[in-house]
């Protein structure tokens, strides 16, 4: 019989806690998602029969829309956020004095910890129907209640979180780059933008991947931002989950959406990581 090693024993309390606080609730959620729901009840009856109906109904266009909106807005916002955060991080690392670098990094950290509700209402006040932007929109014949515009506002709200998260992640990876590489590329005839494209960018792939995954998973699971800025017209999966549990008390359906969201998150992380590492490897061997 194998005796568990001492260090193995040390991991036990953590593992037990993890099982009790995360795995058990997830199993309960999984079981609930398979129960048949009777309208009017709060949650499924303890003896309700098992069914796949809660999953099947997610394929209906009305539900599918939530998935697509969430993924689309999250993806576009993440890409835009990285496009802003990357040059920002690069500037902070390369052009700032150590004093200003410390101030900038401190500012980004503070921004992350600033209350989500505060940041989100700040966006609503400036970009929403009462803000200074609304009259401009009306001038060009747009309504602040136009659903495309609302998606844009939700994206702007998400950027409040994504930019500092992504910038902080990227600062680390840019700091590890040799600044001489860009100069070498320039001395070999590549204009500045091409020098960055052929050195800085490919060498930051790991950092960009990390920043992308952090930002994207944050966006997919966003709750407060789409709830406040989406005004019911743009809703994310989290809002629908909340709606299922709290408004209709349809626990089985809420549980099914939660689990599908989790799977979508994992699938995205897996696919993007595979794609990027495969490309990096192909480059390395080529």
């Amino acid at each position: 019989m194998m005796k568990p090693s001492r260090s193995g024993m040390l991991a036990l309390p953590g593992a037990a806690l993890y099982a009790a606080l995360f795995l058990l609730p997830m199993v309960a959620l999984g079981i609930e998602s398979l129960r048949l729901f009777t309208p009017g009840r709060v949650g499924a009856a303890p003896d309700a029969p098992f069914t796949l109906l809660n999953y099947a109904e997610l394929l209906e266009p009305g539900f599918r829309r939530f998935f697509f909106t969430t993924l689309r807005v999250s993806f576009v916002t993440t890409v835009v956020g990285l496009a802003i955060a990357f040059p920002l991080a690069y500037r902070i690392v390369r052009s700032f004095s150590s004093r200003w670098r410390a101030i900038a990094i401190g500012g980004l950290v503070t921004f992350i910890f600033l209350s989500a509700v505060v940041k989100t209402y700040a966006v609503e006040l400036s970009l929403g129907s009462v803000g200074p932007v609304a009259p401009l929109l009306r001038a060009v014949g747009l309504s602040a209640n136009n659903s495309t515009y609302i998606e844009f506002v939700v994206g702007a709200g998400l950027l409040q979180f994504i930019i500092p998260i992504a910038a902080l992640t990227l600062i680390g990876s840019i700091q590890n780059l040799d600044p001489r590489l860009v100069e070498a590329a320039q001395s070999l005839g590549a204009p500045t933008w091409k020098s960055h494209l052929s050195t800085t960018l490919p060498l930051s792939v790991q950092g960009l991947l990390a920043a992308f995954l952090l930002s994207f998973t944050f966006a997919i699971s966003a709750f407060v931002v789409p709830m406040i800025l989406g005004k019911g017209r743009v809703q994310f999966l989290s809002n629908m989950i909340y709606n299922r549990f709290s408004e209709v008390a349809n626990y089985p359906s809420g549980a099914a959406i939660s689990l599908v969201t989790l799977v979508v998150c994992f699938a995205t992380i897996y696919l993007v990581t595979r794609l990027v590492t495969a490309r990096a490897q192909a480059r390395g061997e080529g």
């Binding site: 040799d178 001489r180 590489l181 100069e183 070498a184």
Partner: peptide
């Protein structure tokens, strides 16, 4: 102008 850097600055990728 051709440059030879102190620590080579070869493109590692």
């Amino acid at each position: 102008v051709g440059l030879l850097f102190q620590h080579y600055a070869l493109f590692p990728h």
